[in-house]
C-alpha cells in the first residue's frame, strides 16, 4: 500500500505536466527539485533527529561542483553531475565527522558556522565563483538513446526534475524501511540505548549526514543544470532555513512531508511576493505558526489522526 501511494503521487506529478499552464508547469518543476533538497534534509531531521542549520553547504556543494566544472572546465552534463555529487558527499562526510560529538543546539550551531564559512568562501574567491553575482551556464543537453534533449526545453526540465525527485522519494522510502533506517530512527529516539544494543552510533551519524548531504547535493546540482545559474545566494543562510521550514511544515519524519511542505511554501511565497517586497515575512510567520500550532506538520498530522501506517 505504501509503495503504491508513493508511485501514485509520482504518477499524478507526471500527469500534471499535460494539463498545467506554462507558469505552473515551471513552478512545479522547480518545486520538485527543491522537494528533493527537502527530502535530503528530512533524512537528518526527521529520521535521525538532528536539526541542521547549515544544509545550504550541501546544496551549494552540489551546485558549485557541477556549475564550476561546466563553466570553467567545459564538462558535459553527466560528468559535471558526478563532480557535484562527489563534492556534496565529501562535504557531507567532513561535516558528519566534525559534528559527531555534538548534540542538540551544538550540532545546529556547528552546521550553521560551517555553512557560513562556505558561503563567505564563495564570496571571497570571487574570481572563481563570481560571488554574489554568480554566473549563467551555457545551453546544455543530455543525450538519451541517441536523441539529444535540451535542458532549456520546459518539457525536458519538468521530466528531469520528476526523475530526480522520484529517485530521491523512492530511495528515501527504501532507506527508512531498511535496517539502516531502523537504526537511524533508533538513534533519533534514544542514542544511548542504541549504543548499548551494540551499534556504533557515531558511524551511523556520519553516514546519515553524508547521505543527507548527497541527496541535498543532487538537488543542488540538478537545480543548476535545469535553471542554468550558480550564485552564492544558494549558499546563504536562507537556503539553510528553507529546507527546515519545508520539512517541518510538511511533516518531519514522513516521506511525503517534504513535497507537501515545499509545494505549499513555494506557492505561498509566490503569492506574497506579488503583494510586498518583504515577502520573506511569510517564511517567518510560517515558522512560528507551524511550531506553535502544527509541530507535526501537515502529513505528520494526517498520520496521527487517520493513517498510522504512513511512513
Amino acid at each position: 500500500m505504501t509503495l503504491g501511494l508513493h508511485l501514485a503521487v509520482l504518477a499524478v506529478l507526471a500527469a500534471l505536466q499535460l494539463v498545467l499552464p506554462p507558469f505552473h508547469h515551471g513552478m512545479v518543476a522547480r518545486v520538485m527539485v527543491l522537494a528533493a533538497y527537502a527530502i535530503g534534509y528530512n533524512l537528518l531531521l526527521g529520521y535521525t533527529g538532528l536539526m541542521s542549520l547549515g544544509h545550504a553547504i550541501f546544496f551549494a556543494a552540489g551546485m558549485y561542483g557541477t556549475g564550476l566544472t561546466v563553466h570553467h572546465g567545459g564538462f558535459g552534463v553527466a560528468a559535471a553531475l558526478v563532480v557535484g555529487l562527489a563534492a556534496a558527499l565529501a562535504v557531507g562526510a567532513v561535516v558528519g565527522v566534525m559534528t559527531v560529538r555534538t548534540a542538540g543546539p551544538a550540532f545546529l550551531i556547528v552546521t550553521m558556522m560551517l555553512a557560513q564559512a562556505f558561503y563567505l568562501a564563495t564570496l571571497h574567491f570571487n574570481e572563481l565563483t563570481l560571488g554574489d553575482q554568480g554566473f549563467i551556464l551555457p545551453a546544455l543537453e543530455v543525450t538519451l538513446a541517441g536523441r539529444a534533449f535540451a535542458l532549456a526545453d520546459p518539457a525536458v526540465k519538468y521530466n528531469v526534475a520528476l526523475v530526480v525527485f522520484g529517485a530521491c522519494l523512492l530511495a528515501s522510502l527504501g532507506l527508512v524501511r531498511s535496517p539502516v533506517g531502523r537504526v537511524l530512527v533508533a538513534l533519533r529516539e534514544n542514542e544511548e540505548r542504541t549504543r548499548l544494543l551494540g551499534y556504533h552510533t557515531g558511524r551511523y551519524r556520519v553516514l546519515a549526514v553524508a547521505l543527507s548531504g548527497l541527496v541535498s547535493g543532487l538537488a543542488g546540482a540538478t537545480y543548476t543544470l535545469l535553471f542554468s545559474y550558480v550564485g552564492s545566494t544558494f549558499a546563504g543562510v536562507l537556503y539553510s532555513i528553507y529546507p527546515l521550514l519545508w520539512t517541518l511544515l510538511g511533516g518531519a519524519g514522513t516521506t511525503l512531508g517534504p513535497l507537501v511542505g515545499t509545494l505549499l511554501m513555494t506557492y505561498a511565497i509566490d503569492v506574497t511576493s506579488g503583494i510586498t517586497d518583504a515577502y520573506l515575512v511569510i517564511v517567518g510567520a510560517a515558522l512560528v505558526l507551524t511550531i506553535l500550532w502544527a509541530p507535526a506538520g501537515v502529513v505528520g498530522g494526517l498520520r496521527a489522526r487517520w493513517a498510522r501506517w504512513l511512513p
Binding site: 545546529l108 515575512v281 510567520a285 515558522l287 505558526l289 507551524t290 511550531i291 509541530p295
Partner: peptide
C-alpha cells in the same frame, strides 16, 4: 529545538 525554530521565525518577521 522548537525555540530555535521559533526565534528564526521571529528573526524573519522582525526583519521583514
Amino acid at each position: 529545538e522548537s525555540t530555535i525554530v521559533a526565534t528564526i521565525g521571529l528573526l524573519y518577521i522582525l526583519e521583514q
